[in-house]
């Protein structure tokens, strides 16, 4: 672990809801080192997913600075931000969100479709990534033919296939039984320790958070200081 892959200062998010202004996130100062595995915990509505979305570049902050993978992503246009996401971030959702009419192979291939690479190279990369998550024998199965754990592995393969530095995971084990959840966490740990991926994971589950190098707690849109955690908990 060395320089910060994620660096944010005074980060805040506001939006209008009717006549009211809602602030799900404020005054966030955060540094995540390259190769670090960070777990974000907190009650519902504490701003965990909002922070994850900002870091992943799928939402934009209202205030503050945010540098991810060496880029001030608040300054990027929609299209440049999309290209940036394609190369730097892999997003893993709680409910997998695979495209139901595409096979596991085709789902994992999606992030590469807009890259200029020969078909053969693309196929090899997809096959290697599916093998990495242990699904080489399920490549041509549709999501409906896979278990929840297998679907989440496909989603992880999709997040990994373009070799991003950063993986963000929103409750990746939230929809899985204990055994499948454990397997997914082991996979994420392996990706971090053996492949140097930086991981930011949102979770409610303290057992899941134990897999991370560092756990941060959010409450009412703010990061708690370590001395506040036990008091809040």
């Amino acid at each position: 672990m060395n320089e910060s892959l994620i660096h944010c200062r005074k980060l805040a998010k506001h939006y209008r809801k009717g006549a009211q202004t809602v602030t799900p996130l404020r005054d966030i100062d955060l540094d995540v080192a390259t190769g670090e595995f960070l777990a974000l915990m907190g009650p519902s509505g504490s701003g965990k997913t909002t922070l994850l979305n900002l870091v992943a570049g799928i939402d934009s902050p209202s205030e503050g600075t945010l540098r991810v993978c060496g880029e001030d992503i608040t300054q990027l246009s929609r299209n440049r931000l999309a290209r940036w996401r394609a190369h730097h971030v892999g997003y893993i959702f709680q409910l997998y969100h695979l495209v139901p009419v595409l096979t596991a192979f085709e789902n994992v291939e999606l992030p590469l479709l807009l890259d200029d690479m020969p078909r053969r190279v693309r196929r090899e990369q997809v096959e290697a990534t599916l093998a990495q998550v242990g699904l080489e024998d399920r490549m041509h199965h549709y999501p409906r033919e896979l278990s929840g754990g297998q679907e989440q592995r496909v989603a992880i393969a999709r997040a990994l296939v373009a070799s991003p530095e950063l993986l963000v995971a929103d409750e990746p084990t939230g929809d899985l039984d204990r055994e499948a959840g454990r397997a997914i966490l082991n996979l994420l740990e392996e990706l971090c320790t053996e492949h140097g991926k930086t991981i930011v994971m949102v979770t409610h589950d303290p057992h899941a958070a134990e897999s991370a190098h560092k756990v941060l707690h959010l409450e009412k849109g703010q990061l708690l200081k370590p001395e506040e955690v036990n008091h809040a908990g």
């Binding site: 999309a82 996401r85 997003y91 969100h97 495209v99 999606l110 807009l114 997040a159």
Partner: peptide, 13 residues
Amino acid sequence: RENAILQTIGFPG
């Protein structure tokens, strides 16, 4: 939602 997923993984609008 499917289109949002595509955008999340890097498809421009």
